[in-house]
Amino acid sequence: MGLLPGTRDGRRARAGRAGATLRPWLAAFGVVLAAVPVRARQAETGPLEVQLLCDTDSVRPGRPLRVGVYFELQKGWHIYWRNPGDSGLPPQVRWTLPAGFQAGELSWPAPERLGSGSVIDYGYQGSVLLPVELQTSGPALAVGGTVTLSAQVSWIVCKDVCLPGKAELKLVLPVRLEPGPVSASHARFQEADARLPRPMPPDWTAEATVDPAHFVLTLHGAGLARAAFFPLEAEQIDNAAPQTRTPLPGGLRLTLKKSDQMTGSPARLDGVLALGPGRVYAVSAPVRARSE
């Protein structure tokens, strides 16, 4: 589905309350409008702007290249984490890269808990950079030439209404042998890094038990008191249920309500533990049935 310019769609969405929404011809028109090409590199797309950034100003043949998709959102709007929670969808990126280039997986900074009541989502407000590492072992990277990186990015952005959008982004970089300076975007990568999950410190432990209604995640480590857990799997945790924190000597116990949609019993509880900037950890806790 195409990009619907925000103000138009917003107006239409508001008109929906008066019942005047969704005339098929108008919606079809919206979809046709979607074909309007967006500017290379940066796209202004209603409630958000999206651009392709690179951590350095040039490509070095054979060296990994760090790029990222950067979203800047208008106040009140959000996009979604890799596990979006109860509604929404994560952004998707499809790369078109020079021969021999290969894109890794998107990295996802720790999200925020969004929404209220019985529907809770995980996502981002304000701005977020989703970094990706590219392998650049191209057959014919001409030093002194340029390479063009292209990404088709699609997303759902929501406030009280949701809008789908997509953009074709391009980034042209010179190919140089010598290490290039960091780019003007370097600070954005540093901000993202502070929110990216890293391995738990070696002296920390995480394990979980399961009973018919709950997971109990027991963590040992320093400074865990305010930890929030974000599940990687969509159907393990009841997102809307409060996470009960019980301080332990040298650790924390988090009681997480099981999702009604979960079938079977998972062998591991995988997620992200967010304690603050620079203190975001990947957790993979083995799950065992609670023996009474």
């Binding site: 109860d86 509604s87 209220s116 529907v119 009280d160």
Partner: peptide
């Protein structure tokens, strides 16, 4: 397939 994760917009409940 008796259950699956529902997808879509959040239901717009009064808060």
């Amino acid at each position: 397939v008796p259950t699956s994760r529902p997808y879509g917009c959040s239901v717009k409940y009064a808060d």
